[in-house]
Nucleic acid binder design. Structure first.
Length: 391
RNA sequence: GUGACCGUAGCUCAAUCGGCAGAGCUCUGGAUUGUGGCUCCAGUGGUUGUGGGUUCAAGCCCCAUCGGUCACC
């Protein structure tokens, strides 16, 4: 098995963008990369074979969900996540820290760890930096994350500092617990610091200097304005060691990906593309479209002209529209595949642009064409209200 | 054929003693960022079956008519 390595292949002048290659025991990952989210060992409605066909190189699964159901020991009995879900590429598992805060009922934090009640049956559970390592060892992902604390937005500076400092102490405990996870697994460190520039810088330096082969940026995309997120990344990136891959947790939308790559991020995971797909929002290069809209009722062409995804190669937009309207299961699969393929193609295009030295031009061109639907409609609605007020 | 009950938004139904015709769903648009197939926000939509009458005022009262449901012949 090859050890974990990260090689930078190209950097783009005028930005912090870089293209690289991550080696894992289950294969290589070309960065920048988008990682589809398979919370419960499944990217909802999409099979492992379909993920592979869509160009997925690495996927993400959730420790929190899998420890509650079916349980990490059962997955261990089946030879780990790779064989359990029949995915032989790289896998990254989240620590469960975020879900304890967003899903767990009656959570209680202490220096030891996080106590919470299951969202499934209310049963009490306890996660500690050490127990998370054991659980992730049983799940057997290639890249694993330590237990961290994601501060709420907004939060007081003191709370942000306390959460960051405890995250740092837990990071050290996770490193010390190296015997609990498998030698072929790679533990990433998590940078916190909420929305305090000094804390972000401190956390980036602290976590960046610990012996983690890779780094995840946590605590962002939790409801803050976009500009706050970019500001935090601008604080963090200069403090990070150049030679370690950087994973931006929970991001994001197509436009987020394009911008964050320029701020030095290499890996992304996000539920957004598949979640919004299930509700009809499909990505195209001119922005998000709602496939449920009546205008697709008789659209003979694909969802996006020129898209090479399974859905667009084989089905008309009218058919996809019909499946959603009719509540057919197949819709979830076709819609999800389209958005996953869009994100992966976008990551590939970004990579090619970086290697060609034209990231800036690519970014500006993409953002000029990709107008978020929300902005378009927000403007239209604003106009409508203004007209109504004048009447 | 006789009798009773019911006709209000695309659907299911509210509307006090006769006093500005409303809600849920659908529909249209939006939101969703380390996924609870969840949830939230906004908007369109009406000749109250039809025709008369009473009244300052009718979805509501009266008459006729059309349609539906049920019961009994």
């Amino acid at each position: 098995m090859p050890p974990f390595t990260f090689t930078i292949e190209a950097e783009c002048p005028g930005s912090w963008a870089r293209a690289g290659m991550v080696q894992t025991p289950h294969g290589a990952i070309q960065t920048p990369i988008f990682m589809p989210v398979g919370t419960q060992a499944s990217v909802k409605s999409v099979s492992s074979e379909e993920l592979h066909e869509a160009g997925a190189q690495i996927i993400l699964a959730n420790t929190y969900h899998l420890m509650l159901r079916p349980g990490s020991s059962l997955i261990h009995e089946f030879g780990g996540l790779h064989s359990f879900m029949h995915w032989d590429g790289p896998i990254l598992t989240d620590s469960g820290g975020f879900q304890v805060f967003s899903l767990g009922h009656l959570r209680k934090l202490s220096e030891d760890g996080a106590a919470f009640r299951s969202h499934l049956d209310g049963s009490p559970h306890m996660l500690t930096p050490e127990s998370v390592m054991q659980i992730e060892a049983e799940l057997g992902a290639d890249i694993i994350l330590p237990l961290d604390i994601c501060a709420a937005f907004p939060c007081l500076p003191e709370e942000a500092k306390e959460a960051m400092q405890r995250t740092h102490r837990w990071a050290e405990r996770a490193l010390t617990a190296k015997a609990l996870y498998r030698p072929e697994q790679t533990l990433f460190g998590i940078v916190q610091g909420a929305f305090e520039p000094e804390l972000r810088q401190e956390s980036a330096r602290y976590i960046g200097n610990l012996p983690f082969p890779g780094l995840s940026i946590g605590g962002l995309s939790v409801g803050e304005p976009k500009e706050s997120m970019w500001e935090m990344l601008r604080c963090v990136t200069p403090e990070l060691p150049r030679g370690k891959p950087r994973h931006l947790l929970g991001v994001g939308s197509p436009e987020d990906l394009v911008i964050a790559v320029g701020l030095g991020m290499d890996m992304f995971d996000c539920a957004l593309p598949t979640r919004v797909a299930r509700h009809g929002a499909l990505f195209t290069h001119s922005g998000r479209v709602n496939i449920k809209s009546a205008r697709f009722r008789d659209e003979r062409g694909p969802v996006e002209e020129g898209c090479d995804c399974y859905t667009c190669r084989n089905y008309s937009a009218a058919y996809v529209h019909h499946l959603l309207r009719a509540g057919e299961q197949l819709y979830y699969r076709l819609g999800s595949i389209h958005n996953i393929r869009f994100m992966l193609r976008l990551a590939g295009d970004l990579r090619a642009a970086i290697i060609a030295g034209s990231y800036i031009a690519f970014r500006d061109d993409f953002l000029a064409r990709y107008i978020p639907a929300s902005e378009k409609v927000r403007d239209e609605q604003r106009e409508k209200w203004r007209a109504a007020r004048l009447r």
